[in-house]
């Protein structure tokens, strides 16, 4: 997995690429999420368009980011959820937890609502 990230109008956009299966690569996403949190960034979008698949380790990282941000009055939003990840979110009922958007732009706009 590779990870790129940027900030647009104060909102962090993280773009993992590849597979999130565990090991050092997955730790990178977890650590980067929490690094932004520690640096007072409270609005984060994860663009999943380039994630081929993830397993429960990946879901655990998303949950960690979601709960940590929520506990700091922030929010984690998911954009461009692929069919494979949507299926995982559905069978694990996590689709009821996460806010998902069809595009990064829609996810960013949701912070203004």
């Amino acid at each position: 997995m590779k990870l790129s990230d940027r900030i647009e109008n104060g909102i962090v956009i993280m773009e993992p690429k590849g597979k999130i299966m565990g090991g050092p690569d997955a730790t990178l996403l977890h650590d980067k999420l929490h690094e932004y949190l520690e640096n007072e960034h409270r609005q984060i979008v994860i663009d999943l368009s380039k994630v081929e698949w993830m397993n429960s380790t990946g879901l655990g990282i998303l949950i960690s980011g979601y709960t940590s941000l929520k506990n700091h009055n922030g929010a984690l939003k998911l954009a461009n959820v692929t069919d494979k990840i949507q299926s995982l979110l559905t069978i694990t009922k996590l689709i009821t937890v996460f806010d998902t958007y069809d595009s990064v732009e829609d996810a960013i706009a949701s912070f203004s609502n």
Binding site: N55, L59, G60, I61, I63, S64, T92, T96
Partner: peptide
């Protein structure tokens, strides 16, 4: 539901 682990076998 919000536990970070424990879904592997279920999946």
């Amino acid at each position: 539901l919000l536990k970070e682990v424990g879904r592997g076998i279920f999946i």
